[in-house]
Design a protein around this nucleic acid. Structure first.
Length: 217
DNA sequence: GGCCAGGTGTAAA
DNA sequence: TTTACACATGGC
């Protein structure tokens, strides 16, 4: 059906899935807000995250320094709309302080941080780490998620782990794009996958008929 | 009313 | 080292 991730990328491109989205799909690409969004969106809907982000913005708490200094109870209140708010408040506050302590500024964080450092932080697993590296730091890390797994399941693929799925997604793209193009390519690829699955699913079942029609096979 | 959402940490088996 | 469960709000 599809042989590799490059084919999938090309099929998705034809669907024009990102027409009304921000340039790199994730809102506020390249900013500190992406880090906050990456935590808040865990097992939660993005529409709910937007409410929390707006609350934080109204309270002038949506920046590295403020988030490190904010009172925990107030932070919990502000992010309540996204659910799991007690855990996420802890994660966010601790993470903000750690970034200040280890890197000083968000800009320095983006230059110096690596995946291992992120994974060592509470509340950051592989997907959040890659989201931050990809969409906040603009680095060449491919983000995969449950949507990605579901889409490929619909094509008959099964993956053992996050890492396996991620490798399948990035492997072929590396061969077709220049190194300096990859941050953008990964960012758009993940975004297109999410938007496609959202638009073509009933429950957990993904309908890939539209993509098959676009295929030359 | 039950299932699901742009996951992760922790504690049993 | 796997598996099961908690976290929690709100949309559909």
């Amino acid at each position: 059906m599809i042989e590799n991730s490059y084919e999938l990328y090309q099929l998705l491109e034809k669907q024009d899935l990102l027409q009304n989205k921000p340039p790199m799909w994730w809102p506020s690409y390249g900013s500190f807000e992406v880090i906050v969004g990456a935590i808040l969106t865990q097992n939660s809907q993005w529409t709910r995250v937007e409410v929390s982000l707006q609350n934080l913005r109204s309270d002038n708490a949506l920046d590295l320094q403020s988030l490190g200094d904010i009172e925990l109870e107030r932070l919990q209140e502000l992010i309540k709309p996204s659910g799991l708010f007690k855990s996420k408040a802890n994660y966010l506050k601790t993470l903000a302080s750690s970034i200040v302590n280890s890197f000083g500024t968000f800009e320095e964080f983006c230059r110096e941080v690596d995946r291992e450092w992120l994974l060592a932080q509470k509340g950051i697993g592989p997907e959040s780490a890659d989201s931050i590296l990809c969409y906040a730091c603009k680095k060449d890390f491919m983000v995969v998620d449950t949507y990605t797994g579901r889409l490929l399941n619909a094509f008959g693929y099964e993956f053992e782990s996050y890492t396996d799925l991620q490798e399948w997604c990035s492997k072929e793209l590396i061969l077709h794009f220049k190194k300096e193009e990859l941050p953008k390519v990964y960012a758009l690829f993940h975004g297109m996958i999410v938007e496609f699955v959202k638009a073509n699913s009933k429950g957990k079942k993904v309908n890939i008929e539209v993509l098959k029609q676009g295929s030359t096979i």
